[in-house]
Design a binder for these strands. Structure first.
Lengths: 190, 190
DNA sequence: CGAAGCCGTTCGTCAAGGCGAACACATGGA
DNA sequence: TCCATGTGTTCGCCTTGACGAACGGCTTCG
């Protein structure tokens, strides 16, 4: 399957229409005003908000800048709700070694955007990760213990409260230095 | 300023061109093959990869599906690098009360997308937050201590390792129940 | 060698996107 | 009441994106 989220059929023309109108209303601007600022004809914007038409990237970009919205938000759909996962619960990512456990806490669209893991590790051989998809960024906040984290060739030693971010599409490590080392890993896809 | 990241001038036509070619090469496909699968003329794709032209959303969408790339990645530029913030360092978010400290660890485009905070709190009056922008989602992983976290009317008690996610655009709380309670807060904008 | 098979580019045509003007519809003063 | 100003919609015109065919360049096979 490709793209997962909302790509069953065609392009999200309806989503764009809804997003444009929602964001414009949120900004409290009139259709004419937005069109003027974006440098496009209000007729064009009108058609877009009504779901008619298939804007060029240039046009959509101008609108995303004017509305101060990250472009992607104009194309991608809406919202989630509440969710709790107790320590020990959740889809524990069986590690190759018994001294490393990662629990998937949150993932938006199956395998796109951003996942949050709780990592529990014991000292021992390092947990080496091959590069993931290009564009992945990993953020690690150490909770308890100490660990070597980061790029494989040049990891950083973290103490509780320390934070590190690094590209996930090149080889990287997580090596616990103390027993019961706990960390939060945010894996941000792009 | 709008959009921040890479929107100084016009739309990222060059970025799109580069992305298309990079992703196509990564998939090991020929220009003609990609065009065929996406259902567009190879001449069109050729022009796009050469930076000429300004594709419609429909066209770009077809390509993003075919290349199995999250669409946004085609428009947004490349990569970040490494970054470390030691415990105690970083722009400590001065709290109203002295028993609550939030440190901003990571933010992509100044106030869009997703911020990561390290929250340190002491027992006392709860930290109530007014609703943020609509569409904000907050994820909390408790590191040490115990805390009541979540929707203001119905918070959840968290122990170390526990996780909770909730909409940030309605009133919500963070109330430490033990001294030196530490948590990681991922604030995801949309 | 050609001929056949790819690759990616360029060219002429046509439909569709984007434009400005004219339009219908609500407000709110004078 | 009538005009003025604001909203968002609809209407031709014209530019431009997307298409298919033809092209030059490069391998491979007979």
């Amino acid at each position: 399957m490709a793209h997962d989220e909302s790509s069953p059929g065609g392009p999200p023309l309806a989503v764009i229409a809804a997003s444009l109108q929602r964001e414009r209303r949120r900004a409290g601007l009139s259709l004419a005003e937005v069109a003027r600022r974006a440098g496009i004809a209000k007729s064009t914007l009108s058609q877009l908000e009504s779901g008619t038409g298939n804007p060029s990237v240039e046009t959509l970009w101008a609108l995303s800048v004017t509305l101060d919205v990250p472009f992607a938000q104009l194309v991608e759909p809406p919202r989630p709700r509440v969710q709790v996962i107790r320590a020990g619960e959740g889809p524990a990512f069986a590690a190759e070694r018994a001294d490393y456990v990662a629990t998937l806490l949150a993932s938006s669209p199956p395998h796109t955007r951003r996942d949050i893991y709780l990592v529990s590790a014991q000292p021992g051989t390092a947990r080496e990760s091959d590069p993931h998809m290009p564009g992945v960024v990993e953020h690690v906040v150490l909770s308890t213990g100490r660990a070597l984290v980061g790029i494989a060739e040049d990891p950083v030693e973290l103490a509780p409260g320390d934070y590190v971010a690094y590209p996930g599409d090149i080889a990287h490590v997580f090596r616990a230095l103390e027993p019961d080392t706990l960390a939060v890993l945010v894996q941000e896809h792009r």
